[in-house]
Design a protein around this nucleic acid. Sequence first.
DNA 1: AAAACGGGGGT
DNA 2: ACCCCAGTTTT
Length: 377
Amino acid sequence: MLHFFCKCSKQAFRGLNYDTEMDKVSLQNMDLSTELIDWYQQNKRDLPWRNTTDAYLIWLSEIILQQTRVEQGMPYYYRFAEKYPTVSHFAKAPEDDILKLWQGLGYYSRGRNMLKTAQLVQQQYNGVFPTTYQELIKLKGIGEYTAAAISSFSANEPRAVVDGNVYRVLARFFGIDEPINSPKGKKLFQQLADEALNRQHPALHNQAMMEFGAMLCKPRNPACGICPVRLGCVAFASNATTALPVKLKTVKVRKRFFNYLLITDGGNLLMNKRGEGDIWANMYDLPLIETDGLMEPEALLQLPEIVDFFGENAVIKQKTTVIKHILTHQQLFIRFVILDVAPLKLKKNWFYTTVRNTENLAMPKTIFIFIKDFFNF
DNA sequence: AAAACGGGGGT
DNA sequence: ACCCCAGTTTT
């Protein structure tokens, strides 16, 4: 336990104040993992995926929780676990069903990758979900974090997880200002996490690190006043908690302008199935005209592409205001235009379905909300 | 090495 | 407005 601090101290403390005699003594007499496990056992939340060692259920929870808050993912976990109690059940599902159940959670490639992985596990592993890091890391949708999480939680394999919480806890406790999202930083923090790992209790250790980061060592307003390891914390000693961890600046977002056409034929609604290579892959929306800038619906109807599909007699029955929909790398300016027209022909991925059936199609949140409100169901 | 990929919540 | 969330894949 002591060797760990000696080994890391030179590298870990560079660049930040760490010079009072009292703190040195406190640090050397404290083991981070032991303290955090102790804290964890007294303060942990009761989360459903913590009460099982079923690798399938743990996988389910870990994929759902990628870049997703526990509170947001929880209802999805329950729904998936109930509908697909084993990986064999999951493997038999149509992609449309998986995406529909995933609707509203975002990062839909997670759902598509899960299906591929479930099918592979069913065929190659006879429906028995792998529990070793080396096998898990090969699977679609499972990276270093998730492989470490599943292998440690389901089989107590000594693998240290490094997620957003762990970055924060380590950066603050050891006073590391290397950016967490640089390749160099990622390597450094993984090494640090590996050395901090309690090899006697890998699962407990990993849970403790993450829970501590999520509940106490929070991004904003961390509860340092009640922190069990504050006396060993470099950031606390140098009043640098708000400055850590360091993260490289984010990319700027692209603006896009989506003009959605709502066209009905009796009780049927004209829908579109999206392709791959763009946001919302393989999901459903409405016929879409993307423009380079904001365009009034009246002008939209003059575009050659529109005339080609709808002729010149399309009538605008109604138009919504522009809705701003924010994604990580894009700002979408969306307007819905309700048309009274019978299309001359249909684009490849366009099809009619009953308004009722739209409830069963996986749609982006904002599209689903609009249709739901428009048809009042 | 950097960009792409959703949606929600906090400040 | 900006940041973050039990990250991974693609370019």
